[in-house]
Design a protein around this nucleic acid. Structure first.
Lengths: 203, 203
DNA sequence: GAGGCAAGACGAGACGTTGCGTCTTGTCTT
DNA sequence: AAGACAAGACGCAACGTCTCGTCTTGCCTC
């Protein structure tokens, strides 16, 4: 038991150029041919890379796609990210949900994100990685804005913040995933109003 | 242009025995080997059927899976279905959401439903069929219960019922899809309370 | 530090395997 | 007799493993 059954690759000698070429090729290809026709061979050919180089570093097609997304987000946020906080929770939420809707409407991201979601549905390990690395940090920002509202007395103190985030962003995401209708600003606004006020009738 | 490019099969001569065998085999197989390893050839072999018989009647693997689910629901509901209506909306919703949670927890349905959802994400035509034939009727029942509550003055009249249903059942479904945590009765109850009362603080 | 060397990642692609979707054959049903 | 049926052959595409020969990298020696 002193040696591993299969030797693991030496990360120190890994080619950064190949890694980036693979992630870029994967992201572009899935947008062009769709998830169903995305193949490891296609990614390797597009990246000018041997298939073994992909199999050496990633366990699955979904893992490549995941890393491609991860590379995108790492490239932008300088950790300074925070949601707008003007003191008016309803207005701020509408601003952010409208932005989310716009992002989901962007055809450039639609197919890759749909592909990643498809993989996540089937792969628990990938789902966990997604929850931790991609969705987690964003969700924390959302919860932080809600916490601020709690401090301001706009939200009750015993609110389940995870559930609150789900009730605000969930409908948008579900409608996008299932193509249940257009993601308009009006829809975003309605979500915020309904979630904040509740379904219950108040006289 | 008087003849079709490809002859369409004669539905009157279709073998009902083969159809049922295919749907049963598809449902069982996906539960056993998972969606990733589900193949048309496997379904045909299990059903004791020629591959052509599947290709003759269904356009895709997802369509077979969809029909398998459709056959399940047709077999049960005698159209007498309605959600409980005791006059107490909150209690009724908790009852139904708890039942939904139990259903999603059933390992017998988990893998097939997950597979169907995966297909739906990738296939707009299948998504439309799902919305119309499977999700639609169930959603109508939910909306009808909410309409009853509107008549009783428990919910405001200008409520968007589609959004309300999404805010109630969405969190449960999302948590199941993404394996975000256990689907407990306590969680179901909390969803109902939070959705009905709203996120906003009230003194 | 500079040069030399072994380990191992690299691009390319051959390989056997699997499942695809189509096509062919002969049988059975209506 | 028309056509759906079970069975399975067919060529194709992609799988994941493997074998080349080349290039890069970290380390060891001087």
């Amino acid at each position: 038991m002193t040696t591993q059954s299969r030797k693991s690759p030496d990360a120190a000698r890994r080619s950064e150029a190949s890694r980036r070429a693979i992630l870029t090729a994967a992201f572009e290809l899935v947008g062009e041919v769709g998830y169903a026709k995305l193949s490891i061979e296609g990614i390797a050919a597009r990246a000018g890379v041997g298939k073994q180089t992909i199999y050496r570093w990633w366990p699955s097609k979904g893992a490549v796609l995941f890393d491609a997304f991860l590379a995108l987000t790492e490239g932008q946020d300088g950790r300074e990210a925070a949601l707008p906080d003007t003191g008016d929770l309803e207005a701020d939420l509408k601003t952010v949900l409208r932005a989310t809707a716009d992002e989901l409407n962007d055809p450039h991201y639609d197919e890759p994100m749909r592909a990643l979601n498809t993989e996540i549905l089937q792969d628990p390990a990938l789902a966990a990685a997604y929850a931790e690395k991609l969705d987690g940090p964003m969700k924390e920002l959302k919860k932080e804005r809600l916490r601020s509202a709690q401090r301001a007395g706009e939200l009750s103190d015993d609110l389940d913040l995870d559930l609150a985030v789900e009730m605000l962003w969930g409908p948008l995401r579900t409608r996008w995933l299932e193509r249940g209708g257009p993601l308009t600003h009006a829809y975003a606004d309605r979500i915020v109003e309904t979630a904040l006020n509740g379904l219950r009738h108040r006289a």
